[in-house]
């Protein structure tokens, strides 16, 4: 069965001078996989999800979801997808169960089928015991779970989750990530957006890295890391601020990039860490500084983003 095929999507807000939130995006999401869109805030993740949800019409291009066009057959597409918005979009003065009943009705469910699905979803999100409490009394994590549950009521083939773990405690975050894996196990195709590299790494079959509306890399985690080559990220903590040291290190051979120092901390992207390390200590000593901590990190998605954009994901 066909998953999601995106062809040349473009969206500019307030043209002609406004920001281009999606710039000629083309990618595909296979049926049954977890596909993550990774990128910093403002990269265009929410805009892309909005276009794939038929909430925002692209200026150019089209996408097919389950074989239906988002521009020409939005009604068909909406029947196939469940959308979990970035912010909790629920009613605080209704109970958890009432919220699910309402959203189930919005998805066209009714009668015994509605009741059955609400019971199943409450079980799935682990809130059977709290179903009669008003949402205003729930913790942030519980609200997030209901927020996700509301998108599952109609058994969607495709589930879009737009940064669902922002601002919640680690326990709830773990619960959501495990839940996403369960959705995949149940055959649901998941489109997951995040700016947390760790989440994308843990969850995804494939990852698309977005920056300023452009898809700058796409592939499995291993394929993406391979783009960086044998680079190592060296994180250095000094006993004082060292602007001049950072500039000096930038000129060292095999150093690809050095971040701006902040509170005595900075990182370097280097090709051969073993050769480089003694030089770093020498340079610090010559500059009258002392390295108090040094860490070597294998290449990861953060390194990839850094390599491709020269900026950290959270910049």
């Amino acid at each position: 069965m066909e998953g999601i095929v995106v062809q040349g999507l473009r969206k500019q807000f307030d043209p002609p001078r406004g920001p281009v939130a999606a710039d000629d995006l083309s990618f595909d999401i296979r049926e049954g996989e977890i596909f993550s869109l990774l990128g910093p805030n403002g990269a265009g993740k929410t805009t892309t999800i909005s276009m794939l949800s038929c909430l925002l019409r692209p200026d150019v291009g089209d996408a097919r979801v389950g074989g239906f066009s988002v521009t020409r057959e939005p009604g068909k597409v909406k029947e196939l997808i469940g959308v979990v918005p970035q912010d909790v979009a629920l009613y605080e003065d209704l109970t958890g169960r009432e919220n699910l009943l309402f959203w189930g009705r919005m998805y066209g469910l009714k009668g015994p089928r509605l009741t059955q699905r609400v019971d199943e979803v409450l079980e799935l999100i682990g809130l059977v015991d709290r179903q009669k409490d008003r949402l205003g009394k729930y913790s942030g994590g519980m609200k997030r779970r209901v927020n996700i549950g509301a998108a599952l009521l109609h058994n969607p083939r495709f589930l879009y989750l737009d940064e669902p773990t922002v601002g919640i405690d680690p326990q709830s975050r773990r619960s959501i990530l495990d839940g996403v894996k369960d959705f995949k196990a149940a055959g649901v195709t998941v489109l997951y957006t995040t700016h947390y590299m760790e989440e994308a790494q843990e969850l995804s079959d494939r990852i698309g890295i977005l920056d300023k509306g452009k898809m700058i890399a796409l592939g499995t985690k291993d394929e993406l890391v391979h783009l960086v080559g044998e680079h190592t990220r060296i994180e250095v903590t000094l006993d004082r601020e060292a602007q001049s040291l950072a500039a000096q290190w930038r000129d060292l051979p095999r150093v690809l990039d050095v971040s701006e120092p902040e509170d005595g901390r900075l990182w370097l992207l280097a090709e051969d860490a073993n050769t480089l390390m003694p030089r770093l200590f020498e340079g610090a000593r010559a500059a009258g500084a002392r390295i108090t901590e040094i860490n070597l990190a294998e290449p990861n998605l953060e390194t990839v983003f850094l390599h491709l954009t020269g900026r950290a994901l959270r910049d």
């Binding site: 949800s53 038929c54 909430l55 009604g75 909406k78 029947e79 997808i81 959308v83 918005p85 970035q86 912010d87 909790v88 979009a89 629920l90 009613y91 959203w103 919005m106 998805y107 066209g108 509301a150």
Partner: peptide, 13 residues
Amino acid sequence: SRGLLRRMTAAGV
């Protein structure tokens, strides 16, 4: 403002 109307639209309303 909280995105509930938008969510309704995404649900096909």
